[in-house]
């Protein structure tokens, strides 16, 4: 099932806000192409904080497998896709 573009855009906007807030970089421009590995401050601690904030803001709960997937993902676009699928379910 294709996720509507409006949902993807909303999830991207909220996720970007979370990432900026946790990395404490207000001016950071985040797109779907933004890569975690390119941001030094996005370390494993930040990753845990970001995932927890996403779960809270979107009222979702990731399974262990999904957490594993999230930890393997490098691009914000992949994170947004997974969150969009979960919020649309």
């Amino acid at each position: 099932m294709a996720i509507p573009a409006t949902v993807l855009a909303t999830v991207l906007a909220t996720t970007s806000e979370i990432i900026r807030d946790i990395l404490d970089e207000d001016s950071l421009e985040i797109t779907e192409q933004t890569q975690r590995s390119a941001l030094e401050s996005w370390d494993s601690m930040a990753q845990i904080q970001i995932i927890c904030a996403i779960e809270k803001d979107f009222a979702i709960k990731f399974s262990l497998d999904e957490l594993e997937q999230l930890n393997q993902m490098d691009s914000v676009g992949d994170v947004v896709s997974l969150v969009s699928v979960k919020t649309s379910a």
């Binding site: 601690m45 845990i48 904080q49 995932i51 927890c52 990731f62």
Partner: peptide, 9 residues
């Protein structure tokens, strides 16, 4: 290790 998210905070 299976509980890092969220309990490592």
């Amino acid at each position: 290790d299976r509980r890092l998210t969220p309990h490592f905070l």
